[in-house]
Amino acid sequence: MPVPGPGGWAAVESLGRAVFAVLDTDSRADYAEWFEEFREDPQGVVKPALTPAVGSGVTVTSALLYVLPVAAWLVKVVAEGLAGQAVDTLSQTVRAKIGRLLEDRRGGAAPALDPDEEQVALAALAAWARSVGADAEQAGTVARAVIAVLRAGGAG
């Protein structure tokens, strides 16, 4: 799990909050608490799921669990030029556009991603979400929510 640098956490918090707002329509989650827990142990989400033999048999899962890992990854990719199989499909142009979209809250007029670029970003985001344990549906949900946030004008 790539961990953003000190400056990146603010962007993760901002993007995560916006994506939570899209997905958590009932406002069930206390986002601040959720973010703090993720920041304390970002590697926890990539550990294999613990399914004890004496467990309830009801796996508690939600697309929201993968929002912050995906947000952290995206910030790391854009801000720190992370390399990797899923990342390499994102051209420098797309990374730059996403970077500006993430900063859009500061008042800049960032250029939007065109449809092809959105599809590429969507696939990369979903692939990362899958790699940290989300199923296909949850990965697609999170990826689409991130794109929606970016389309709506960044994380702000």
């Binding site: 827990e37 142990d41 926890g44 989400v45 550990k47 294999p48 799921a49 613990l50 399914t51 004890p52 004496v54 467990g55 309830s56 048999g57 009801v58 796996t59 508690v60 899962t61």
Partner: peptide, 9 residues
Amino acid sequence: GAAPVREAF
């Protein structure tokens, strides 16, 4: 539980 815990016990 920690993040890997997905089931109550």
